[in-house]
Design a protein around this nucleic acid. Structure first.
Lengths: 134, 134
DNA sequence: ATATGTGCAAAGGGTTTGCAGATAT
DNA sequence: ATATCTGCAAACCCTTTGCACATAT
């Protein structure tokens, strides 16, 4: 993915810190602030936690990133891509994307509530294939 | 709703603080810790914030309450009832229940991921009828 | 009578802020 | 050249903890 382009499109300067943050999130899929920090310290040791907070916040505001919130777990971040939902394992904590069509659900939600729907956040919770066999 | 019964069923003692917390959550539908505190101060002024935290935590663990997490908003609590999803207004912050059938989505999620699904957390976000007309 | 719950104050942890120096454009 | 970004440390939440007293069973 072309991170420089995405940053510039939002008038954000391209800095090595930002690129490494985005790379970490991309290669982990879903990651918490602390985990970003722990990983980046090895690549770019001078990076401060405050910089990570500031950048994650600004990249969420500009829709480069999005937050993934799951009841009972700490919040994680992902690169904003095509709309999808999530599954997470209550035992090992793994979180995965799921590209399923939820337009029917969105339609009935819209009809029932009368809201104009912009976006959707959804997480199924259960046991992943390897945890359920133990 | 019979709060005493629900508490006793979980071996939790019935205290006036717990009853007022549950009453507040019930009458507000969805409410944050701080808002519970602000409301309870009028009814039962000696109640401490720590007590509210402790009780909300223990009532979540025992499934009397559940957390509702929405990207970009602070977390709220609701009385655990029949499974449902949520809609929230990005302008005024209102959060509502939506009793729609999501079994088809759950089925495709299960098939695609191989997970055993226990539960589901979902929030549609958009503009509520009264906010969208402004 | 006993286990559990409450309130207080202090501690803890995560997140934000202000500022001076560094960097991207 | 200038606006923006970074790193540091302090400040600032929100949340949890320990303990002595009170209360529910």
């Amino acid at each position: 993915m072309n991170f420089e382009k995405r940053l510039k499109a939002k008038n954000l300067k391209v800095t090595p810190q930002r690129i490494s943050i985005l790379r970490e999130i991309e290669s982990n899929g879903h990651i918490s602030i602390e985990d970003i920090y722990d990983k980046i310290k090895w690549i770019y040791p001078s990076t401060s936690l405050a910089t990570i907070y500031k950048n994650v916040a600004i990249m969420c505001e500009t829709d480069i990133l999005s937050e993934v919130k799951t009841p009972g777990m700490k919040q994680k971040y992902e690169i904003n891509s095509t709309k999808h939902i999530h599954v997470t394992c209550q035992k090992c904590g793994k979180l995965e994307d799921l590209h399923v069509d939820y337009s029917m659900l969105q339609e009935s939600c819209k009809n029932l509530s009368g809201y104009d729907i912009n976006t959707f956040s959804a997480v199924f919770m259960g046991l992943c294939p390897s945890c359920k066999d133990k």
